[in-house]
Amino acid sequence: MKPRKTGRGPATEPRASARGHTPRASGKRPTTTTSTTTTTLVELVVNGAKVEVPVEATDRLLDVLRGPLGLTGTKEGCGAGECGACTVLVDGRAVNACLYPAREIEGRAVTTIEGLGEPSGALSDVQQAFVERGAIQCGFCSPGMILAATALLAEHPEPTDEQIRDGLVGNLCRCTGYVQIVEAVRTAAARRAGGGTR
């Protein structure tokens, strides 16, 4: 089967596409599951907006996000579930988009880094804490790191340092160092506990 990536340009306005992507593909619902070259239309919610995207059997969620949806904030690092750069939330839970079959995303809600923060462009509290604590250097791990931290705080609103480290064990950073990252998560948690969101 031929790769079919050509012709799928990235969205021209990443911010807009992140929040209100309009479906590229339209038309009747699928197709079939018996041919190896068939594209299936899959409906899902991305950053709050319902979208319908063409998906091939071999696609991963990562391919769909970075390809037809143009959400290139989600990074591909190792492609094998080791580095966590492709971490996104599916129904609120952190997953590796490089290990998630795109066909399984049907009917689910995905949150990417573009979907955090306010429509005005203001950062989420976790993002803000990463900025303030210097927890970002090259930025490649940051989207995945921030989404993993967001999921962690949803499950443990007041995490211990050990819980923070356990929650981020699937995310590698090769330049900032983990100290600032752990501090950022601690800061975000403390502000939430203190009632402030910024």
Binding site: K5, T33, T38, T58, E76
Partner: peptide, 13 residues
């Protein structure tokens, strides 16, 4: 990266 590195298969659910 960025390309489908697999030979094709049908996906059944």
């Amino acid at each position: 990266r960025g390309a489908v590195a697999t030979s094709g298969f049908a996906y059944h659910r």
